[in-house]
Every structure is written in structure tokens, then in C-alpha cells.
Amino acid sequence: MASNTSNSTTSLAELLYGADRHVQPTLLGSGLNGLINSAEPTPPWAYVTQRFTAFLQNLNLTEAQVADGTTKFKGVVSTLNAAYYGTNSDSDHAFFIGSWAKHTRIRPPRDVDLYFLLPVEVYNRFDKYSGNKQSALLQEVKGNLLAAYPLSNIKGDGPVVLAGFWSFNVEVVPAFALQEDRTYWVPKTQNGGSYMTTKPLHEVDVIELADSRNNGNVRRLIRMLKCWQEHCNVELRSFYLELLAVEFMDQWAYRDKSYFYYDWMCRDFFAWLITKAGSFVLAPGTFEILWIGEAWKTKAETASGRALKACDYEHNNKEGDAGDEWQKIFGADVPKWV
């Protein structure tokens, strides 16, 4: 499983602007003496790298949380394989989707999302039903899970069957694989029922490729934005934030940089996001137009103003003042002191 963060603790302002920041200070010597005798012995941005490294580490799921989510995935898949295929496999006919597939999950853990692929015989059986076939299908999947987990809160609401557990939920999407590569039908219960075409693995591809061409910055930005979404109750779906992060990063001037530039990355993203109010993103694979509205715009404007102020504090090494502003955006996961 891909790592969500890497160790990045180089300090003394990235060994005196090793990552640029536009102006290279003049070193009076070489090696450690040169750093000590530099024209700027206390360089600006002294706390940025440590702060954002710690922030992203704080968003990592613990080993116990990862193990818990994996165990729940396996238990649900084993139950459904027993019901529909007569085996106890905890991995066949299923795969992660959402943040667990994209490696964009954060702590505290949210839902574990998965697709479970049903046999074509199940489609044929329900196709003979009168009324809402898709609702009947979801109720059957719900019943099979309820039999195995009688004390859990199991709900069926197309296209998802929600298995509510004590620590976090598992959202199961029953699906039928189509002949076209990695294309699936999932049940939709609204308006009398229908099937909709989905391409969830194309979403994973978009994140993976964007992260690769942008120095690993896309996933890190997404994880920080999810923290903002949670802390400030931002009315913008995580899926939309992911696609917006990809779009932003592909045009950001410093996309090849890393942690030393993350104060500017946050500042520039929020300023850019404001310009996207009332626009749309395209769903990978299906190219469905997804309108993102503008209910979230005021909170983006507030975050933009605070990030601008925090960047000024970071430049002047006002560690606590910068930390205060970042915490107003992201909460306590981003440290005030580093």
C-alpha cells in the first residue's frame, strides 16, 4: 500500500533555500561554516517543513485503524461470497473504492467503501421482478449482511448498502461487471429503479497519475483539504475536492516542490478555489458534468484570508502566530509549535 507521507524534516529553511523560494542567500563559506556565517543566519520560513510534515503525519491512520478497516472489508466480502458464490473468500469479487483505494484517507477514519461484484445470474433473477428491481436487490444484499451481523445497523439505500459498525462504517456497492473494461452497473432505486454506469477505478487512475507527475503533492493536498472540510464543515464533497486538487496542481507554478512550499500551496489553492465557484468538474471515465455550486465559497474565502496571513507569519518566523492561523483552517492536527 502506498505511503501517504514521507519523512521530510530538512530545516534551516531547507538548508538555506535549497528548494528555491526565489532568492538564494549568499554563503560566505562551504559546509556547516558557510551556513553559520551566511548573510541570513536565521532564514525565513524556518518552521514550514516541520509543521506540514507533522500535520500530514497526524492525518495518517494508525496501524490499528488500518487493520480494523481491512478486517471489516474482509468480513463483509466473506459474508457476501458465501451468500452468492458458496465460498468463504475474503477478497474475491470485491475491491476498495474511495479514499481507501486512492490512498487519500485521513484520521479519524471515515467509511470503508467497496464494490462487490454479483454473478450475472443474480441480475437475471431480479430482472424478472415487477416493480423496483433495484430496491429488491439491495434489500436482499442487506438481508445477507444482517444475518451475519445481527447487532449492526444495516441499511439499504441505492446504490449503497451501509453496514454500521462501532468504529466506522462499511459502504457496500453491489455491482455487475460489464464487458467493457472496468465498467460496472450499480443499482439506483430512485424514480422506480434503474442501473447506472460507473467507472470507479478510473477515479483511482486520475489520482495516481496526477500524484506521480506532481511530485507526490496531489494526495497530500487532498488529505489536508479533507481536514479543512471536516474542521470547517465545508459543503463540498470529498470527491469534488479530489478532482479540484488535481486540476489546481497541474497548473500550479511550484508543483515540483515539496513540504517547504506547502504554506504557499495552501494559500494558492484557496485563492484559486474561490474562482471555481459555480463551475463544475468532470467525473473520470464517464465524463459526467458535476456542478460544485458555491455554498462553500464563503468558507473558502475565509480560509484564503487566513492562509495569506499565515504565510506572512511563516516568512517572518512567527511560529505561534502562523500556527494559530493554520489551526483556524485545519484544526489541531496542524501543530501550532514545531
Rank of each mutant, 00 (worst) to 15 (best):
E242K: 13
A245E: 00
R237G: 03
E247F: 04
A245S: 13
D250W: 08
L236E: 07
W252R: 12
F239R: 09
F239H: 09
S238T: 14
M249P: 02
M249Q: 02
V234Q: 01
E242L: 10
Y254K: 15
N233I: 04
L241E: 10
Y240K: 12
M249Y: 01
Q251N: 10
F239T: 08
W252L: 09
M224R: 12
M224I: 07
E247R: 14
L244K: 10
L243W: 00
W252Q: 10
W228Y: 08
M224F: 02
L244A: 03
M224K: 09
M249E: 02
L241P: 04
Q229L: 09
E247K: 15
L225K: 07
S238E: 04
L243A: 05
R255H: 09
N233Q: 07
R223C: 11
C227Y: 04
Y254W: 14
Y240A: 13
M224H: 02
E242D: 05
L244C: 12
L244I: 08
N233W: 06
F248Q: 00
K226L: 11
F248Y: 06
F248A: 04
W228K: 06
V246H: 00
E235N: 15
D250N: 15
A245Q: 06
L225P: 06
R237M: 05
L243N: 08
W252H: 10
W252T: 06
Q229F: 03
C232Y: 04
R223S: 07
E235Q: 15
W228A: 05
M249T: 02
S238G: 14
K226H: 10
Q251S: 13
R223K: 14
L241F: 09
D250T: 05
E247L: 14
A245I: 08
A253T: 14
F239A: 13
M224E: 06
R255Y: 04
E242M: 09
Y240Q: 10
F239I: 10
D250K: 12
R223N: 06
A253N: 10
V234M: 02
A245C: 05
Y254H: 15
Q251R: 11
L243T: 03
V234D: 00
R237S: 06
E242S: 10
D250L: 15
C232T: 11
R223W: 07
V246T: 11
R237I: 01
L243Y: 02
K226Q: 11
F239Q: 09
L236H: 03
R237T: 01
L236S: 00
E235F: 13
Q251P: 02
R255M: 05
Q251K: 10
A253Y: 12
R223P: 07
H231K: 11
F248C: 05
R255W: 03
A253W: 06
C232W: 00
Q229N: 06
Y254G: 00
F248K: 07
R237F: 00
Q251C: 05
L241K: 07
W228M: 10
L236N: 03
Y240R: 07
N233F: 04
D250S: 11
S238N: 09
A253C: 08
F248N: 07
W252N: 08
L241A: 13
R237V: 01
F239Y: 14
L243M: 07
E230G: 07
